[in-house]
Design a protein around this nucleic acid. Sequence first.
DNA 1: CCGTGTGAAGCTGTTCACAGCT
DNA 2: AGCTGTGAACAGCTTCACACGG
Lengths: 233, 233
Amino acid sequence: MPLDRRSVSESTASRLSLYLRSLAVLEAEGVAHVSSQALARRFDLNSSQIRKDLATFGEFGLRGVGYGVAALRRHLVTILGLDETRRVAIVGAGRLGMALADYPGFGSGGFAITAVFDDDPARISTRTRSGVVVTDVSHLPALVAELGIEIAVLAVPARAASDAGRLCWESGIQAILNFTAARLPAPPNVHVKNVDLRVRLETLSFYIGGAFPLPGKEEPWPRGRSRSLHRRT
Amino acid sequence: MPLDRRSVSESTASRLSLYLRSLAVLEAEGVAHVSSQALARRFDLNSSQIRKDLATFGEFGLRGVGYGVAALRRHLVTILGLDETRRVAIVGAGRLGMALADYPGFGSGGFAITAVFDDDPARISTRTRSGVVVTDVSHLPALVAELGIEIAVLAVPARAASDAGRLCWESGIQAILNFTAARLPAPPNVHVKNVDLRVRLETLSFYIGGAFPLPGKEEPWPRGRSRSLHRRT
DNA sequence: CCGTGTGAAGCTGTTCACAGCT
DNA sequence: AGCTGTGAACAGCTTCACACGG
């Protein structure tokens, strides 16, 4: 019975990534088994959350014992598709794009920055610190096909975003990490994740403010429950 | 009646930021009024979502007409706390930190990058492109107090994250945008938003894969790269 | 009429609680 | 005994549908 990945929620998928990181640490420490409760403590999560997340993909645990650290880590690597190197292109060789091209998390552990593109002649042929040559974006379709690039990191100015995005999916790129402010009209088979830094900062700004005076409205107090940070394991 | 901001969900808060961006465009275009439905079309959202979000903070609409663009924009600016400039510090002057220090969205429209800190002597006294001097992190507490810095952008190596984070909140910083892989044990009055780029990329990788064969026991399943086009119902 | 504001319904993700395996 | 795996209960966010005001 196959499982459509689209039926897995994004929150579950990103927790898998967190679990993987913890398991790598535990494996390096030589820990053999870990219980959902022990893992939960590391993330301030509920332990049944972890068991449910993992149970989506199979029965990896041993009742009375917990999960085998090494085996579970291997399973998560496979589930996340990191057992073969995924090729990543950076589109936009400005400051952010170049910083991301050298970001350690992007060029290791299942990912390789395989190309960097820009349309500014002044940037073409420069190199990232790790030596990847900035290529004219007109070569993107050919290089995506030739090198088997599956993921694009979009770090172009907002006005160029939808053109650059379209070029990506028309070239066969399957997923886009979008650092621009634009929302991309991508076809449904292309997965887009927006990392809108401005929105993140404004959201933080919102929560800094004090109690908000509602003009002319009578509302019961307190409104809603305060979010408890305490979770049971 | 006052409204505790913590009772507002993060999804609502970040949508406010999106609405604000759209309203700025509409205002520049000279549009006087906009309906929740017209706004919704821009975001692929349900219109009652927008009405509910806005109604949390007051009655800004005119029945039969919609929302006044200029007035609603001003309200959102106030709600998000962007009517006075918020001072932001970058902690960590590596490539990512320096790129973020010059990121246009961080230094405008209600935010100002007021300081950049690092502990590497080789980086102290260098400047961002916009001219902010990199300062030794030992001066962070004094400068946070002196300059009224409220938000920190944490872009240090993972191993330095919790020390740097603690320094931030002990110095009076109220919100942290955390680009490190570490999870910060911040006190409850400090708002932390994790922007874990590695997790984002691994999550994308997860969704690229084809249908997932739920394993019988220990058969190695091949990584499918074919894509199902049908949406879940 | 039209579009907002809002209770009610619906849905999705989280937590509980326990049966069952080791 | 200890811990997983899972149906059931729960909570919170989203959508519906309509009363009400312009």
